[in-house]
């Protein structure tokens, strides 16, 4: 299996899909430059640059998908999707239901997300909770190159709208573009296992809505995704010193959630910690709690999430985003509740 970066893995999957299916096209701001390799290979009719008009070109993606294309529409940073929210909230996710199931929207929205490089809360949000709240949508958040390629392929093959989120700490070009700018005077806490790794060639689809247990343990179930997953694994190592052995689950999809995996792991350990870089309220962590309650699982519950507007100053930002210390402390407290 070739080794590649997280960023390359995504484009590799997109390239594979474009090669297999002529209906797959991609457009968005700056894509001629951002996806220049695809542009050279597939040309301007399939790799099309758009004006800074998210509302128009995302909604155009919905129409194009309804009329026979399979567009992968790029919203540079997921924060900017606010400008184009109607396209998802009132258009893409309504078509199938309103048409009585007779018309579907095979649309992929690709966006970078996440923080950790000091860009503040208008450019560093995750928003998968907000997006997942709409019936009729899937939201995937890979944490490593293999899943990134597999989930991109599945997203394109999916016949309904999917939001594919690419964390900027894992994507080297985004981090260089927005954070480093070629400087050697700044550094970021990049999880190596997420930024680079082996990817099957051709990429193998990863089913949407399927999580994976990445660490065995019987004391506690930690559910996470994206960059936070790596923070959880680091915390899990430290928790060994406290005599705590947590299971760590990579949810991989924020929506739909892997109900079976969540229920089985939580039932086994009786303790649940959700670590979510997205906002604490009305989102993924609460959804996991609701899912467990609905399934009759009795488990102690805690969450480590982003609870306020992400501040600019990096030392403040480090405390606001889920970090290893906060995860470790929450796990220790949780295990002390019912020794």
């Amino acid at each position: 299996m070739p080794e590649m970066t997280f960023a390359r893995a995504i484009d590799f999957a997109l390239e594979t899909a474009m090669e297999r299916d002529e209906r797959v096209v991609t457009f968005g701001e700056d894509v001629t430059m951002l996806r220049r390799d695809l542009f050279v290979r597939f040309g301007p009719s399939r790799v099309r640059q758009a004006p800074i008009s998210e509302a128009a070109f995302l909604a155009a993606g919905v129409g194009a998908a309804m009329a026979g294309l399979r567009p992968v529409v790029e919203i540079m940073l997921v924060d900017f999707i606010a400008v184009a929210f109607d396209a998802l909230l009132n258009q893409a996710t309504k078509v199938k239901a309103f048409s009585g199931g007779k018309w579907n929207v095979p649309l992929v929205v690709r966006a970078s997300c996440g923080g950790g490089y000091g860009d503040a809360g208008q450019h560093e949000q995750c928003l998968w909770g907000l997006l997942s709240g709409m019936p009729g949508i899937s939201v995937v958040v890979p944490s490593n190159p293999k899943d990134a390629a597999g989930l991109m392929l599945s997203s394109i093959e999916c016949d309904d709208p999917v939001v594919f989120l690419e964390h900027k700490l894992l994507s080297d070009y985004w981090l260089d573009y927005l954070g480093l700018g070629g400087r050697e005077t700044v550094s970021f806490d990049v999880p190596e296992a997420g930024a680079r790794g082996e990817v099957p060639s051709p990429p193998v689809p990863v089913p949407i809505g399927k999580g994976i247990k990445v660490r065995e343990g019987g004391d506690l179930s930690i559910f996470s995704l994206g960059v936070s997953l790596h923070r959880c694994l680091e915390a899990a190592n430290q928790l060994e010193d406290y005599g705590i052995k947590p299971a760590v689950i990579d949810l991989r999809s924020a929506c739909p959630l892997d109900r079976e995996l969540i229920v089985s792991s939580a039932s086994r350990t009786g303790r649940v910690l959700v670590v979510d870089e997205d906002y604490a309220g009305y989102g993924l962590s609460g959804e996991v709690a609701a899912l467990l309650a609905e399934s009759g699982v009795k488990a102690d519950f805690a969450r480590v999430c982003t609870e306020e507007v992400i501040p600019y100053a990096r030392r403040l930002e480090d405390e606001v985003l889920p970090n290893v210390r906060r995860i470790r402390e929450a796990a220790v407290r949780l295990c002390a509740l019912s020794p």
């Binding site: 000091g118 860009d119 503040a120 208008q122 450019h123 507007v309 501040p311 600019y312 100053a313 990096r314 030392r315 403040l316």
Partner: peptide, 18 residues
């Protein structure tokens, strides 16, 4: 503010874009 300091224009929370 640019240095992310609490005595900055926006207490270090906004930064140059905000």
């Amino acid at each position: 503010e640019m240095l992310g300091h609490e005595e900055g224009l926006c207490a270090g929370k906004g930064g140059h874009m905000h």
